[in-house]
Amino acid sequence: MKVRQISIFLENKFGRLAQVTRVLGENGINIRALSIADTTDFGILRLIVNEPEKAYGVLKDAGFTVSATDVIAVEVADTPGGLAVALEALEKTGINIEYLYAFVQKASSAALVVFRVEQVDEAIKVLQQSGTRILSEDEVYQL
């Protein structure tokens, strides 16, 4: 139920993001979701891709600073308060969310959200108990 996320450290320089996407594209790797957090000098690009191990390798070979992290991809009702159900379940058990970002699924009435938490296995149990559907890595990579 864990999904592998690739994080790339990027200097805030013209064309760096384009270079990442070019390397991935040239290697047949499809981006499923992304998030970027930046400061004046650098950014961290977080990606969910269809082939995370391959992406890690080709980006590393291309000279990027890359890391891999386990995250959770959940499906929440695409209605007001839909995300609150999952967040409240984690809050009740004291599981802290380090960050999250949403992504789009083709032809679905649900919203998909990626969570990064410290206690991944515990968070999966809590979310399942709350009725939140956790997507498998295969489901996410094939979106």
Rank of each mutant, 00 (worst) to 15 (best):
F42Y: 15
N12C: 03
L34A: 04
A62Y: 13
I97C: 02
L45C: 00
Y99W: 13
A62N: 10
I6D: 03
N12E: 05
A86Q: 05
S67Q: 09
E75F: 06
F9R: 03
V140A: 10
N12K: 01
A86I: 02
R32K: 06
V114P: 00
T79Q: 15
A37P: 00
V66R: 00
S7H: 02
S7N: 02
V104N: 12
E53T: 02
L10G: 01
S136L: 09
I95Q: 10
A68W: 03
A111S: 15
E91T: 09
T69V: 04
G25I: 08
M1Q: 12
Q128P: 00
E122L: 06
V114Y: 04
G94L: 05
G15W: 15
L17A: 05
L10R: 08
A111R: 10
E26S: 13
G63Q: 11
M1R: 10
V104L: 10
T39M: 06
A86F: 03
Y141K: 15
I48V: 07
Q119I: 01
I134V: 14
S136C: 07
K60Y: 11
E139D: 12
K125E: 13
I134S: 11
V140F: 09
L34N: 07
I95P: 12
G131Q: 09
F64A: 06
S35F: 03
T93S: 10
L45A: 00
Q19C: 05
E53A: 01
Y141L: 07
T65M: 08
F64N: 08
V71R: 03
L45Y: 02
